[in-house]
Amino acid sequence: MVKYILRRLLMIIPVLLGVTFIVFSLTYIAPGDPARMILPQDATEADIAQMRHFMGLDEPFIKQYFHFLFGFKSPSDDSSFSYKGLLALDLGRSYVSNRPVFRTILERFPNTALLSLFALLLSVLLSIPAGIISATHQYSVPDMIVSILSLLGLSMPAFWLGMILIWIFSVQLKIFPSLANPNNLKSLVLPVITLATMNTAVQARMTRSSMLEIIRQDYIRTARAKGLEEKKVIRRHALNNALIPVVTVIGLQVGQLLVGAVLTETVFSYPGIGTIMVDAIQRKDTPQILASVVFVAIVFALVNLVVDIVYAFIDPRIRAQYEGIAKIKINNSLGKSK
């Protein structure tokens, strides 16, 4: 198991390299010149060219990408353009605030994490029981209610839902504030609902369909033939099996939460990663954009690593696969050493 976790950690590296390359290419291709944006309006072309040189922006694409990975030493005296590279978790300073980009991210990430965690909790607590009831009482009134609500939840984009919630609960009813901040739990209610709605809908549908499939399995019939109470049949025999695909979806949903945070945080002016990204993109603050995207990618990859480990705990067949791989590897290496 430890070996498996280590191997999965190593596998994250190529994924992240791919992500960084794509993100770097996108910011490279995107129009707008950071040098021009940093300098005052009346800067001459020569000033701009020199600034580009200081920032390393006049180098060829591949070389800039290597700078991005392994660090860049600015030819100017101003050390604020130098950085140690992604591998040292240093992508330099923001062009706008002149603060180290990762520091800003690490300061703000707990806010996003808090929001996402609440949203995840809410969606899991609502969706899994709803999915189970829906599946075990197929075609009943509760099933129909769950189905309709989840369709509704799926069809509402987060930014729209956020604005509607603000309009109803902040503007009309004045129950919750429209601006959210992490120190005021009450202000988090609306953004958490906004974030959780889509996830709840997706997970409820997933739980329902997975559960419906499992309760038709032969081993459920075996459990009933043992004389087991229907509730226990569901809890002991159906639920764990049905949750395997749901766990996958929840893992992917975390990515969705981080993306959703961009929209939700913007709507509620919440100081998280999402607002950093939006600000950075608007100002073409390349180091900040790169750092944020890479950071989100790392979080996403780690969450899915956790998901894969959870799998192995739920399902002995998956566990056996990894142990099997390990055994084959050991056997191979033994074979070679002979």
């Binding site: 399995q217 032969d218 081993y219 019939r221 075996t222 459990a223 009933r224 033939a225 043992k226 004389g227 087991l228 109470e229 002991r236 025999h237 764990n240 099996n241 739920i314 399902d315 002995p316 067949r317």
Partner: peptide, 24 residues
Amino acid sequence: MRDIRGSKISMIFQDPMTSLNPII
């Protein structure tokens, strides 16, 4: 019926491959 199932009347099913819970 539950008291009878599994204790007084038991059943063996057709497909052993799918009749056992894979994760227990």
